[in-house]
């Protein structure tokens, strides 16, 4: 059993992460309706898909005129990391089968980061559920605000929303490129940019992004053992003092998540 202050710290961390992440649901909502989806489709994405990177990727590819298949493939490839988070969380949380469906839906960057940063299983469960539920509620609320506001805007370029979409992707990839472990990631990112730009004039919309992913698969499968790329966590200034280094649970992953900004 955790001491009460450990659980309080986990809850406080969860609330600040939820607020920071939920707020930028506004940018997703506005970008989604200006990409051509309606408010209902935008809300369906935040409720059902509920994974920020995949949601931005889907609307990015559809907005650029990409085919359904390319859009779904991009979203699913970006969602693949959530499977790895689930594999980290399963032994850490040790949930009963009846909780698996809600737990799976709430398995995102932020809930994984907060859960794995806790010192024991009870605190990990508190951190996971509070962060997952908090982000879910606020992300959907602010998606609705953004979608309703975006519906009233005219040309999105007037407000720089096309640049906002690019900045959103940059903010999502940024925490994955840092530190000595990020060297391979930086090389792959540079190769992905080159492949995407070089192939854009010659293949249908949406395909350049998938070709860039193929480069990463080749590097990942063929290259000899490289240092693992850290799991980015959520942007939470309080996280570091709440979870001193070396306090992961007995079953927890060896690498502590990196507490920086990312999408749900």
């Amino acid at each position: 059993m955790s001491p009460p202050d450990v659980l309080t710290a986990a809850r406080r961390q969860a609330v600040s992460v939820s607020l920071a992440t939920g707020l930028y649901g506004v940018s997703f909502g506005a970008l989604s309706v200006t990409s051509g989806l309606d408010v209902a489709q935008t809300m369906a994405l935040s409720l059902l898909l509920f994974s920020g990177g995949s949601q931005f990727a889907l609307i990015g590819v559809l907005g650029a005129g990409g085919a359904v298949g390319a859009a779904v493939a991009s979203a699913a490839l970006l969602g693949a990391r959530n499977a790895l988070y689930g594999a980290q969380l399963a032994p850490l949380l040790a949930l009963p089968a009846s909780r698996l469906v809600p737990a799976a839906q709430l398995t995102i960057d932020e809930s994984t980061a907060v859960a794995t940063a806790q010192p024991d299983r009870t605190a990990a469960r508190v951190g996971f559920w509070w962060t997952g539920a908090g982000v879910f509620v606020l992300w959907n609320l602010f998606t609705l605000v953004g979608a309703l506001a975006g519906d009233r805007l005219g040309d999105p370029r007037t407000y720089g929303l096309d640049a906002a979409a690019a900045a959103a992707f940059l903010a999502l990839v940024w925490p994955r490129l840092g530190g000595p472990q990020g060297r391979t990631a930086r090389l792959v990112a540079a190769a992905a940019v080159l492949v995407a730009l070089a192939t854009t004039p010659v293949v249908p919309a949406g395909v350049p992004v998938l070709l860039a992913a193929a480069v990463a698969i080749l590097v990942g499968v063929l290259s000899p053992a490289l240092p693992a790329v850290p799991v980015p966590g959520a942007d939470d200034p309080g996280a570091d003092d709440a979870a001193p280094p070396g306090t992961t649970g007995a079953d927890g992953p060896a690498d502590r998540p990196d507490h920086r900004r990312s999408a749900p």
Binding site: A80, R81, A196, V221, L226, V229
Partner: peptide, 20 residues
């Protein structure tokens, strides 16, 4: 794990390039 992490990086980087 490494491949999944790199795929995430590649997709996001490519999306930055395409959107920019």
């Amino acid at each position: 794990a490494r491949t999944a992490a790199l795929v995430t990086v590649a997709l996001l980087a490519a999306l930055v390039a395409v959107q920019t």
